[in-house]
């Protein structure tokens, strides 16, 4: 029937546990994406799916293929490293862009631009020649 019939039961239990853990956490993150109020709260929710959601399903895939092929199958580590590296980069870029847009529009819920040190020094009156 299916290729998993000759796997030991404890391998199947571990694979099933990690599959349901990963997909359940991804679903929780997506529900949070719908239900949170503001954008800055919402941006936290999908990271649940990219950390343990992806981690659980990739672990399940690694364990399943290692047991099927009777050798360690490690190429899912590539996706894991890629996801872990790229998610903070893309979300930080997105949030900085949104912060910039909110400040330009002057909406009240974000802090405005802080005066930098150079700007405060330029604001001082120049010394007159005595």
């Amino acid at each position: 029937m299916n290729p998993f019939a000759d796997l030991p039961v404890w391998v199947a239990l571990i694979v099933g546990f990690f599959l349901i853990l990963g997909s359940g956490l991804t679903l929780l993150g997506a529900i949070g994406l719908v239900r949170f109020e503001s954008f800055y709260q919402r941006v936290h929710a999908p990271t649940l799916g990219t950390t343990w959601g992806a981690g659980g399903i990739l672990l399940a895939s690694m364990i399943c293929f290692s047991a099927l092929q009777s050798r360690p199958v490690m190429h899912e580590v590539l996706i894991a490293i890629f996801i872990v590296v790229t998610t903070p980069v893309s979300l930080m870029l997105l949030v900085r862009a949104v912060l910039y847009r909110d400040r330009i529009e002057g909406s009240g819920d974000v802090p405005s631009f802080e005066p930098t040190r150079d700007a405060s020094q330029e604001a001082q009156p120049p010394h007159g020649k005595a």
């Binding site: 998993f4 199947a12 694979v15 099933g16 546990f17 599959l19 679903l27």
Partner: peptide, 27 residues
């Protein structure tokens, strides 16, 4: 036995992930 466990776990996981995709699509 183990085939049944894996097939059911994969089915539940796929239903959860399709639900997650539906929430993301709603947003």
């Amino acid at each position: 036995m183990s085939g049944v466990i894996i097939v059911w776990a994969v089915t539940i996981a796929q239903i959860f992930l399709v639900g997650a995709m539906a929430c993301a699509l709603l947003r």
